[in-house]
Write a protein that binds this DNA or RNA. Structure first.
Lengths: 243, 243, 243, 243
DNA sequence: GATGAATGAGGATTCATTCAT
DNA sequence: TATGAATGAATCCTCATTCAT
C-alpha cells in the first residue's frame, strides 16, 4: 500500500518542523485531507527529485535549498512547508532511496537464487542492484558522502546494518561452518567491493560499462567462489584462517 | 633530502599570496632565513595537520578556515599568512600527501617484489599502502571528495593516472598475453577494490583491523591469482573473455 | 632651524602613541639622544615619503600600513615605532606638506609682488604654488580626499583658514573698499579656482601642461582684474555687488 | 517615461547577481510582475538612497555594505538580493545620477539659450546644474572619488567626455575662429571651474549659498566673456595666444 | 497552501596593530 | 631599535530559514 507509506513519509518529513504542533488535519473529515495529502505527496516527490539532482550535481553542502526549490519549480518557502530543514530533505530522500533499495535488494536476494550456480546467482543478484544504482545516482552520493550530517549517515548505517545482517544470514545459512566473525567480514567486504565496483561501472557508459560490470562480477565471483565450493582453496584465506 | 622539499613546499604554499611579490630575502645568508623558513615551515605543517583533521571531520566544504586555525591554535589571520585561501590549504595538503603517497607507492612497487609468490607480493605491496592510509586518513578525504575544488581533483587525477599506468605496465609485463583493455580494467578494478577494502580496514581498530586487512588481501589475491597462475580458470572471466 | 622642527614633529608623530608616557630620553645627556632623534627623523622622513607615494597611488583607505612600510623598506613594526596609527601618518604627512606649502605660499605672497601688474603678479604668485603641487602630488590627495578621517581634514581646514585669512587681508589691503564678506568669498573662490585648475594642470604633461597653466592664469586674471582695476566693470559682479 | 527607465535600471541592478539567470517572469502579464517589480524598484531606490548618504559620509571604501543596509533599514542579505556586490551599488547609483544629470544637462544646454546675453545664459545653464548638484551630493562623491572602482570611473569618464564634446561644439559654433585645442582647454577649464565653485556653493547654505552662486557665475562670466565679446581683450590670453 | 522578499548568523578574507625575539 | 609573525575585529558576501501577503 504505497499511499500509507507516502503519508508516513509526509509525517516524517515534517517531524521536528516549526515550533508548534501540527494541526493534525481533523481526522473526522475523510475526503479533503486525503486530497491535500495527495497534493502534498506530489510536492514532496517533486522536491525530492529535485534534491536528488542537485545533490548529485553539487554534493550535500554545495546544494542550496534555494537551488533545490528552483530545480523543483517552487519557491523556497514551499520547500520549508514540507521539510523543516535541509537535513530533513536529505534524510527523507535517503530513506526513500533506501526503501526502494530495500525492495530491490529484497527482490534480488530471494531464496530461489541460492539454488543457482554462483555465476548465475551473481547475475540474478547483482544485475538489479547495479540497475538500481545506475538509475538512482543520488543513492551513492547520500550513501558515501563524508560531508553529510550525522543523522543521514546514521540512518544509512541502520539500513546498511540490516542489509549486512541479511547477507550474513544468507551466508551462514549456506555455509553453516563459517565462523560468525568471518561471515560478518565477508558480508561487509562483499558490500564494499560491490560499491567500489559500482563507482567504476557508473563512471562509464555503454559497452565499457558492460565490460566493467563483467569485471565486477568476476571480482565477486572469485571472492565468493572458494567459500561456496567444497574446496575452500583460497590461498591467503587458507593461511590466515587455519592457524 | 626531505628538508629541501619541505622548504620548496613552503614557497609553494605562499605563492600567490597577497598581491605583492615576496622580496625573497637574499638566499646567500644562511642563519636568519633558515630560522625564518624553519618557523614558517613549522607553522605550515601545524596548519596542514589541523586542516587534515578538520577536513576528515567535516569534509572540505564543512571545514571552515576559522575552525582550521582554531584547531591549529592560531588566529585566522595567521592562516592567511601562509595560504592565500582555503583551496590552497587543500591543495598543499593534497600535494604533500600525494608526494608521500608517491614515495610509499614507489617503494611498494619495486621489481624485486614480482619474484615473490602472489601472496607474499600482496603483503609486500599492500602493507605499506595500507599503513600509509591508516596514518593519513585525510588522504582518502582529499582523494575521494566530490566537493573538492578542481585543482586538487586534477592533481589527484594525474597521480591516479600515473599509478594506473604503472600498475597496468606491471600487469602487462608479467601477463603479456592480457589484452590492453583488460589490463586497464584490471588495474582500475584493483585500485577501487583496494580503496574500498581500505575504507573498511580504516573503520576498525586493532585485531579487527588486522582481520579486515587479511580479508582485503584475500579479495585481491583471489581476484589476481587466476591471472597470474597458468590456469586462468576464473569462471565468469572465462565465459565473457573467451567468446 | 629645521632640527627643532624635526624634533617637534617627531614628538607630534608619537603623540598619543601607545598607552604609556614617553621615556623622555634623559634630557641630561646630550650626544646620544640627538643622534637617536636624528636617526628617527630619517626614518620618519623615509616613512612619510613612502606614505606619500602609496597615498597617491591608492588613496588613504586603499593604502595599507604594510604597503607603506614595505615601500619604505622597513617592517610594519618599525612604522608603528614612529606613528601610533595610520591616521597619524597622514596627519604628519599633511602637516609637513602644509608647512612646506606655508613656506611656498609665504614666499609667493611677498609684498613686493603687489607692485607688479596683475599679470606679472599672477606669474610670481602662482608659478611657485603650481610647482609645489606638481612636485608634491600627495598634497592634493591629502587635501581633497573625501575619505580622509576628520582629524586630517580639520588640520587642513586650519591651514586653509590661515591661508584664506592672509589672502583676504591682502585683498582688503589693496582694495579697502571691498566689503568684508565679498573679500572672503573672493579669496575662497580664488583658492578653489586655483585648485581646480591645478588638477587640470597636473593631469597633463609638458607643453600641454604649460598651456593649461596659461589657461589657469587667464581664469585667475579675468576673475581678479575687475577688482584690481579702477573700472570694476565685470557685469554680473556689478549687478550683484552694487544694488 | 521615467518609470520604464526605472524598471530597466532595476534589471541592470540585478544583472549578474547570483549564479543563475533570472526566469524573466513572462512580461506579457501585467498585474503581478508589475507589483513585484514595483516593490523591488522601491527597495532598490531605498537602498540607493541609503548608499548615496553613506557614500557621501564615508566615501566609497569607507562605506560598508552593512552600513548601507542599516541606513536603508534592511538586513545585509536584502541588499545582496538586489545588488551582486558593493561595486554594483555604486555603479547603479552612478548610472542613475548620470542619467538624471544627462537630462539636466541636456535641458540646460538648449540652443535657445545661445541667443541670450552671456549673463542670462549663465543663469539659464548653471542654475539647473547647480540645483541638481545640491540635491544630489552623492553625484560629486561618485564623480570625483579617486578610490572608486574602475567601472564607475569609466562610465563617468564617458559622460564627461560627452559633455566636454558638447560644450566644445557649442564654443566652436559661436566662436568659429577659436583654435581647436583652445576650445578643448576652455571647455575643460569651464568644467573644472564649475565643479570647484560648486563645492564651495554646496559647502554653504541659504543666503551664503546664494552669494557663492553669484560669485561662481561671476567667475564663469569673466572667464567666458572675453571669448564671446567682439573685443577679446583678456590680457594674458592675448599675450600668450597671439605671439 | 504558495510565494519570494527578508532575515541574520556564519564563513572567507583583510589589515591595522601588537609583541616576542 | 628593528623585525615580521601573530592577532582579531571588521568586511564582504552567502544561504538556511522565516513570514507577511
Amino acid at each position: 500500500m504505497p499511499e500509507d507509506r507516502a503519508e508516513e513519509s509526509a509525517v516524517t518529513a515534517r517531524s521536528g518542523s516549526r515550533t508548534e504542533e501540527a494541526p493534525d488535519a481533523g481526522s473526522g473529515t475523510a475526503g479533503r485531507p486525503r486530497r491535500r495529502q495527495a497534493r502534498g505527496e506530489a510536492r514532496i516527490a517533486q522536491l525530492l527529485e529535485a534534491a536528488a539532482d542537485v545533490f548529485c550535481a553539487s554534493g550535500y553542502n554545495g546544494a542550496s535549498t534555494n537551488a533545490i526549490a528552483r530545480e523543483a519549480g517552487v519557491s523556497p518557502g514551499t520547500l520549508y512547508q514540507f521539510f523543516p530543514n535541509k537535513e530533513a530533505i536529505a534524510i527523507e530522500l535517503g530513506e526513500r532511496l533506501m526503501d526502494r533499495w530495500r525492495e530491490t535488494y529484497g527482490a534480488a536476494f530471494v531464496v530461489s537464487h541460492v539454488e543457482l550456480p554462483l555465476e548465475r546467482m551473481l547475475d540474478a543478484v547483482l544485475d538489479p542492484l547495479i540497475a538500481f544504482n545506475c538509475e538512482n545516482p543520488a543513492f551513492a552520493v547520500l550513501t558515501h558522502g563524508s560531508e553529510i550530517p550525522g543523522v543521514i549517515t546514521r540512518e544509512h548505517d541502520a539500513l546498511h546494518a540490516t542489509m549486512l545482517t541479511r547477507t550474513e544470514q544468507l551466508l551462514r545459512t549456506f555455509l553453516p561452518e563459517l565462523p560468525a566473525d568471518r561471515a560478518t567480514r565477508t558480508a561487509e567486504m562483499s558490500f564494499v567491493l560491490f560499491k567500489a565496483g559500482l563507482d567504476l561501472v557508473m563512471a562509464h557508459e555503454g559497452a565499457e560499462r558492460e565490460a566493467y560490470i563483467r569485471e565486477l562480477k568476476t571480482v565477486m565471483y572469485r571472492y565468493l567462489e572458494p567459500l561456496v565450493c567444497d574446496t575452500p582453496d583460497g590461498a591467503p584465506a587458507g593461511s590466515t584462517d587455519t592457524p
